[in-house]
Design a protein around this nucleic acid. Structure first.
Lengths: 256, 256
DNA sequence: CAGATCGTTCCTGTCTCGGGAACAAATTTA
DNA sequence: TAAATTTGTTCCCGAGACAGGAACGATCTG
């Protein structure tokens, strides 16, 4: 089940345009013919779509090469502000990064995955692949599992059903029942952990930011096995995470 | 001349989808009927387009309300990196902000306007309306005029022809010929200034970042009339701006 | 200067897609 | 509680949009 079959029909020409946008996102600079070949459409089709995109100022053309315009940056700013109280999240994450020296991330659920809204990097932090806007599976990350644990029951169950629980390391949870047990455990103690389930050598702790009967997202601390002992994780690190989550919670609760 | 009549046709359905995206960018959370009314289309039409957008994971739906997904953030990251050497620009801008305590901005030309790629704010900086991704006219800003001065001759002329040279303050340049003279002056001394031409009480200095026979963009220092005397502008401030521009120039010249 | 490749334009037939109406579900009002 | 709105969704249909192919210049390459 890869395609999310929602209600309604799907518009072909819109799909083409959106596919062009996706192409322009990843490929540095692209020309008409290259896009036509890559997307399997005629040159004239791509040509007209690019013309439309340029007309709407979403794409810029510099001597034959096309790229997304800076309007995307403006859109990104708006998107950030539409999610809870972005400033509070950033402040708390920065503070945590400063204090722990590790990687702090804030993630929310989108389309059955964790999407990273913000990332703060401490002094001695390890670099991870994930960056702002990137996605990760939910079942193998502490952020994902923590969010799953605090979403409304039915929503959680529907998400689990649609997951394929791919294995990434020997620790990855790959059965739905094991995942359900893990979520119950997270609810018991109030925070989630990732014990090398997504990437070998990396551990995380996550605390949920609740919002009424659902969950806004979660904040996590990530670090190497060497510095992330069981004692530290279940001690100071989990406390720091839940503390930050609480501050965010208090500041967003009354704003929407 | 508002619409940029380029070559080729324009795709209606794509326009609808892109208009929805624009709507979602500005309005916080929107539902089917509201969008239908605002864009002047039937509910079924909007419905199908939203379905397409959600299918492509560019839009998220949370109990009936739609918003742009965090994929936009990912796209924004890519866009930044596609423009010259973003890291160098950021470093130089931050350094300048630190040193001067004022607002530093880096802008490029897009669709006949200045778009801001990065903004660094010093300690005692005045807040301006413009943010990352936002647009400003070229004829009334130091960034815009400086970029115009260093674009290829024919490109500059075509841009001037298509501008409407709106007046914002008593100092705004509103005639094409006066603008051409100003550009020549900028080329003479190597940097451009904005003497309360865009906003009352604000002055700027900008230096171009050249790139072969064209210009990548420009970097500017903005501040209040009180601190930006003629002496300072034509002395240390213009030197700081051109210095930073040169560093960026050197670092981008060999990578693109 | 030939050959190839590019972007652009024009045309045509098919099937897409926008709109309207009817329906169902949720929300509001009395 | 029931009636009355308003919502999101589905279905159908005919007009016309739009994807593709071919042909044309323009540009690049050797």
């Amino acid at each position: 089940m890869t395609t999310n079959e929602g209600p309604g029909r799907t518009i072909q020409s819109a799909e083409i345009t959106l596919n062009i946008i996706s192409e322009l996102q990843t490929q540095d600079a692209t020309r008409v013919t290259a896009l036509a070949n890559r997307l399997g459409h005629s040159k004239s089709t791509i040509h007209n779509h690019l013309h439309t995109l340029e007309d709407q100022q979403l794409v810029v053309r510099e001597d034959g090469e096309y790229r997304l315009s800076l309007r995307i940056l403006d859109m990104a700013m708006h998107v950030r502000e539409q999610i809870g109280n972005y400033d509070v999240i950033r402040n708390e994450a920065d503070a945590l990064a400063e204090e722990t020296g590790e990687i702090i991330q804030f993630g929310i659920e989108e389309h059955g995955k964790v999407s990273y809204l913000y990332k703060a990097t401490g002094e001695q932090a390890v670099e991870t692949l994930s960056g702002v806007g990137k996605q990760q599976p939910m079942h193998s990350t502490s952020l994902g599992k923590t969010i799953l644990a605090y979403l409304p029951q039915d929503r959680t169950e529907r998400l689990i059903e649609s997951m394929d629980l791919e294995r990434f390391t020997s620790n990855t949870i790959t059965s739905a029942d094991a995942l359900r047990t893990e979520l119950e455990e997270i609810r018991q103690r109030g925070y989630g952990i990732d014990d090398e389930e997504n990437i070998e050598g990396l551990r995380c702790v996550s605390a949920p930011v609740e919002n009424g009967d659902t969950v806004l997202g979660a904040i996590s601390i990530t670090g190497p096995l060497s510095r992330f002992t069981d004692d530290r994780i279940h001690g100071e690190l989990s406390e720091l995470a839940t503390g930050a989550a609480n501050v965010i919670e208090l500041n967003t609760k009354f704003s929407g």
